[in-house]
Amino acid sequence: MDADGRDGIYVGETERIIGCAFAVLNALGHGFHEKPYEEALVVDFCHHDIPYAQQARFPIHYRNTKVGEYVPDLVVFGKVIVDTKTIERITDHEVGRMLNYLRATCLQVGLILNFKHAKLQFRRVTLTPPAAPPLHS
């Protein structure tokens, strides 16, 4: 697990998403609720031919029983969860939640985008699969 997202997985894809987030913030400004930023990202993704799913549903299981669902804001390129926020700052709490989201969806990369302030704050979070046990000869 790499909460700083420095592992190199889907870097090009996340850079394109972040570029769209900068464009959205520059156009709309800061301070709205989360939903307008999510919707504006969708418009920008369409403009740049970036594939996305909005409000996709992922089941949450406990002991092989479905106990709920997780509905991310966006899943982009079929592999990056995008969570739009308008909070004071991104903390370890949001990173921990994103790690849970990644586990629930079996995806590896998440982006937390915070539109609260005039400067976009973002955090790339990755969940790498556990290392294989060493082989014994």
Score class of each variant (00 low, 15 high):
residue 16 R to G: 00
residue 124 R to M: 01
residue 26 N to W: 03
residue 3 A to C: 09
residue 96 G to H: 13
residue 71 V to I: 15
residue 53 A to R: 14
residue 111 L to C: 01
residue 99 L to N: 05
residue 123 R to M: 00
residue 35 K to W: 12
residue 125 V to K: 03
residue 107 L to P: 04
residue 25 L to M: 09
residue 103 R to Y: 03
residue 39 E to W: 02
residue 120 L to V: 02
residue 113 L to F: 06
residue 61 H to A: 07
residue 130 P to E: 14
residue 98 M to Q: 13
residue 127 L to K: 12
residue 54 Q to D: 04
residue 107 L to G: 02
residue 91 T to A: 08
residue 78 G to L: 05
residue 11 V to Q: 12
residue 71 V to Y: 01
residue 19 G to P: 04
residue 14 T to P: 06
residue 113 L to K: 04
residue 54 Q to K: 14
residue 104 A to Q: 11
residue 49 D to T: 09
residue 80 V to C: 06
residue 92 D to S: 12
residue 47 H to Q: 11
residue 87 I to M: 11
residue 95 V to L: 02
residue 27 A to M: 06
residue 32 F to C: 10
residue 94 E to D: 05
residue 49 D to A: 13
residue 107 L to T: 05
residue 62 Y to T: 04
residue 76 V to G: 06
residue 21 A to I: 09
residue 17 I to R: 07
residue 37 Y to F: 08
residue 15 E to L: 13
residue 45 F to Q: 11
residue 134 P to E: 11
residue 25 L to T: 11
residue 12 G to Q: 09
residue 119 K to F: 02
residue 35 K to H: 14
residue 86 T to S: 15
residue 51 P to N: 14
residue 122 F to Q: 07
residue 124 R to F: 00
residue 9 I to C: 00
residue 78 G to T: 06
residue 79 K to Q: 11
residue 78 G to H: 06
residue 69 E to M: 08
residue 125 V to T: 02
residue 50 I to G: 07
residue 106 C to M: 08
residue 130 P to M: 12
residue 66 K to W: 00
residue 122 F to P: 01
residue 116 K to V: 00
residue 85 K to P: 05
residue 23 A to I: 06
residue 78 G to F: 07
residue 61 H to W: 13
residue 44 D to Q: 15
residue 105 T to F: 03
residue 112 I to Y: 01
residue 84 T to K: 00
residue 89 R to K: 14
residue 30 H to T: 08
residue 51 P to Y: 07
residue 60 I to E: 07
